[in-house]
Simulated assay, not measured.
Amino acid sequence: MKPAPTRAELRAHLVRTMIAGDVATPRQNNLLHYRRMANGNPYYQFGLELKPSWTERTVLEMMVERCGVDPDPRHLFGDDTIDPDITLDTLEAMGERIGLAARRQEDVVVATGHPATLTPLYQAVARALEGAGCRVLTPAAGWTYEIETGYGGSDLRRIVYAEPGVAMLEGDDHRTHHTHDPHPMEAMLRELASSVSESSVGAKPDFWPDLAIADHGWAGAAGQAGIDTVGFADCNDPALFAGAAEGKIDVVVPLDDGVSPHHYAPLTAYILDRAGLPAGPVPSG
């Protein structure tokens, strides 16, 4: 991996690659998701039990503050924005929390609902934490559940892990899949909760995450369970930002989570540098 960029260099990279700044996420899609989250649609709440007081207006106001979307409620169509300085501030906060995990040699879970784009970033962070003595937990490997695919069809999804321990979902087609679902993380935590030694009945689980590094429902379910959680979210995914506003998620980094994987390499180096961890090679996307 190349040396970590400076803040100014990374800011320029974020804007140039449209990870932040003017992004390709349609404004109408953002507003639709804000309304659905405010209306309590579970798919858009990512496993978080959010307060019922959210409205489409207050979600937009919160997303202006925490993500940097266009504040004009009359902006209904076209592309939207992510404030690159908020992205940088939260990347630094994420790096500091990951650095704390490394110094404490914490137990960590790492998971992504965006395996096609964010896996190399997560792998590099997980590998650096393992090198620092952290235990990257890999519970519930192979756990499956059924999803509806439309027109009365269904498919199975199973938890798989990319080395050294990044959870994601695989389908019957043996390909990894995008997901918003909290159910896989909930299954992982159920398995960990049952890891109590026979000699310590009533005690805490033998294995329990001190930190979750994740996105989408993986992050929402971890935060809802009371685990320190840092993660990434696009400007059309308001739930994690709302979770942060309610104190259930520690750090949410706003970014476009669908650009080419290699564009996230400078962010990876920046996070690891902030964490005080060595930047090894980043797996190719």
Results as ranks from 00 to 15, higher is better:
41 N>C: 09
128 A>I: 00
103 R>E: 07
260 S>K: 11
190 R>V: 14
161 Y>I: 08
65 E>P: 01
146 E>Y: 00
196 V>D: 07
111 A>L: 09
242 A>P: 04
182 P>T: 01
31 L>T: 15
231 G>N: 03
263 H>T: 14
214 A>F: 06
58 T>K: 04
216 H>F: 01
175 R>I: 08
43 Y>G: 00
267 L>T: 06
24 A>T: 14
110 V>G: 01
156 L>H: 14
151 Y>F: 07
190 R>Y: 09
115 P>S: 09
263 H>M: 13
261 P>Y: 02
237 D>Q: 13
266 P>G: 09
102 A>V: 06
215 D>N: 10
247 G>F: 07
88 L>E: 05
243 G>E: 09
160 V>D: 14
248 K>N: 03
186 E>W: 02
276 G>L: 05
56 E>C: 01
57 R>V: 15
35 R>E: 12
117 T>D: 10
68 G>N: 01
235 C>A: 12
146 E>D: 13
3 P>W: 09
141 A>G: 10
208 W>M: 15
102 A>Y: 00
66 R>W: 10
144 T>Q: 14
120 P>L: 06
113 G>E: 08
19 I>A: 05
196 V>I: 14
266 P>Y: 05
270 Y>G: 00
181 D>C: 01
58 T>V: 01
68 G>L: 04
35 R>K: 14
282 V>Y: 00
244 A>Q: 15
161 Y>S: 11
116 A>F: 03
68 G>W: 02
70 D>C: 12
121 L>C: 03
165 G>H: 04
269 A>S: 11
20 A>G: 10
226 G>F: 10
261 P>K: 06
224 Q>K: 05
183 H>M: 08
185 M>A: 03
113 G>A: 07
16 R>N: 09
76 L>T: 10
85 D>T: 11
235 C>T: 07
34 Y>R: 02
262 H>D: 14
224 Q>H: 08
114 H>K: 07
280 G>E: 02
252 V>P: 02
144 T>P: 08
250 D>E: 11
86 I>G: 03
159 I>T: 11
159 I>N: 06
106 E>L: 10
45 Q>C: 08
158 R>P: 06
245 A>V: 06
105 Q>A: 12
261 P>S: 05
226 G>K: 12
215 D>R: 08
124 A>I: 01
2 K>Y: 05
242 A>W: 09
